[in-house]
Computed example of a mutant assay.
Amino acid sequence: MMNAEQKAAYERDGYLLVKGFCSREETNKLYKTAVEDDAMRKNALDLNDLSGKKTRLSLWFTPGNDVFGYLTRSKRMVESVGELLDNDSPVCHFHSKLMQKEPKVGGAWEWHQDYGYWYKNQFMFPDQLISVMVALTAANKENGCLQVIKGSHKLGRVNHGFSGEQVGADMTMVNNALKTMELVYCDLQPGDALFFHSNLLHRSEANLSDYPRWSIISCYCSQSNLAYNETSTSWKTPVDMVPDEAILKWDAASLSDNDFLKKENDPALKETGWEKEV
C-alpha cells in the first residue's frame, strides 16, 4: 500500500518510482516469458518514429491467467494503483503492453502524454487514468530510458499531432515545459516500477546500445471513468485480483489467447482532422 509521502510525491510530480516492486525471481520469469512466448512476436506492432526507426510493442486488453496477467491483477499492483487514482470506484485494467527496444535498432518515443492518445478513446477524466511501467531489463540513458518532465501533468492535456506513426505533443508547449520544469531520466533496474499520471509528458530515446530495454506497461482506470470511443470492455470491468504469489507459484497459461490490439483498430492512430493544426 502507498504511504502518505508516496501519494503526495505522485500528486506533486506526476510520477512515483518504487524500487524492487518485483523480486529478481519474478522479473526473471516475466522476461523469460516475454522472450519465449511466441504470441508476443506474432502480435507485435511496429511504429516508426520521426527518424524511421521502429518502436515495437505488443498490446492486449483483458488480463488473463498468464504470468503477465498475474502481475497486472496482483494485490500489490491493484491496491497501489487504487491509492493513486483520483476516485474510490473499483480499479479496472485498460490494457497492458510489452515494450521491446532491441539493441541498435529500437526506435524513440516522441514527447507525448498518454492522455494525448486516450483522449481519442474519449475517456472523460485523466486523473482516473494511470500507467505502471515495470522494467524487465535495466533502463538507463545509454539504452533509451524513459524521460519525464516533472510536474507536467499539471499542464492538463496538451494538443497532439502525428510524429511519424506515433502521436506526439505540441513541441511549443513541450519546450516551454522544459524551460519551466525539471527533466528527469528514469533510471530503472529490473523489477523497479514507475507509476505515472496520464498527463505526464514523457519520451524515450532510441536504443543505440548493445543491450535490450524491455518493459511491461500496464494501464488502469477507475470504473467511474467512462470511455465513449473504446470497443474493448476491460476498461470498465473491475480487476479480478489475485495474490502476489500467483506470479511465481500458480500455473500460467500461454499469452496466445489474449485479445491483442490490431494496428488498424487503434483509434489513436486514426486522423480526426485536428492533428494537422499541431
Rank of each mutant, 00 (worst) to 15 (best):
M1I: 07
F21N: 01
Y10V: 12
R24C: 04
F21H: 05
A8H: 13
A8V: 12
Y10L: 12
N3Q: 08
G14N: 03
K19Q: 15
N3M: 07
A4H: 09
E11F: 07
K29E: 01
D13N: 11
L30H: 03
L30P: 00
E26K: 04
G14L: 02
V18G: 01
N3K: 10
Q6N: 14
M2F: 07
M1Y: 07
L16K: 00
E25C: 04
L30I: 04
C22W: 03
K29G: 01
T27P: 00
A8G: 08
R24W: 01
E26T: 04
M2G: 02
F21M: 09
N28W: 00
Y10C: 09
Y10Q: 10
V18Y: 02
K7Y: 08
N28E: 12
F21T: 06
C22K: 02
S23Y: 07
L17M: 13
E26I: 05
N28P: 00
G20K: 11
G14K: 00
M2E: 07
A9K: 13
D13K: 01
M2W: 03
F21L: 08
L30K: 01
Y15K: 02
M1F: 06
E5Y: 11
E5D: 14
E5M: 13
L17K: 12
E25P: 03
D13A: 03
E11Q: 15
M1Q: 09
E5N: 14
R12T: 10
A9Y: 09
V18W: 02
G20Y: 06
Y15I: 08
G20V: 08
A9W: 08
E5T: 15
K7H: 10
N28C: 06
Q6F: 10
E11L: 14
V18F: 02
Y15Q: 05
K29M: 10
G20H: 10
N28T: 05
K7T: 13
Y15E: 06
L16I: 01
K19W: 11
G14C: 05
M1V: 09
T27A: 00
E11D: 14
M2A: 09
M1K: 11
G20M: 06
E5K: 15
K29H: 07
C22E: 03
G14A: 05
S23M: 08
V18P: 01
E5L: 14
K19G: 10
N3W: 04
D13Y: 01
A9C: 14
M1T: 11
E11I: 09
K29P: 00
F21A: 03
R12A: 10
E26M: 07
K7P: 07
Q6I: 12
A9V: 11
E11V: 09
A4L: 13
G20R: 12
E25R: 13
L17H: 09
G14I: 03
K7C: 14
A8I: 12
S23A: 08
E26Y: 04
N3P: 06
Y10D: 10
N3C: 09
R24N: 06
R12N: 09
M2L: 14
N28D: 08
K29Y: 04
E11N: 13
R12I: 05
Q6Y: 09
D13C: 03
E25M: 09
M2R: 11
Y15L: 06
M2C: 12
M2P: 04
K7E: 13
K29N: 03
N28A: 11
E25S: 11
K7A: 12
S23P: 07
V18I: 15
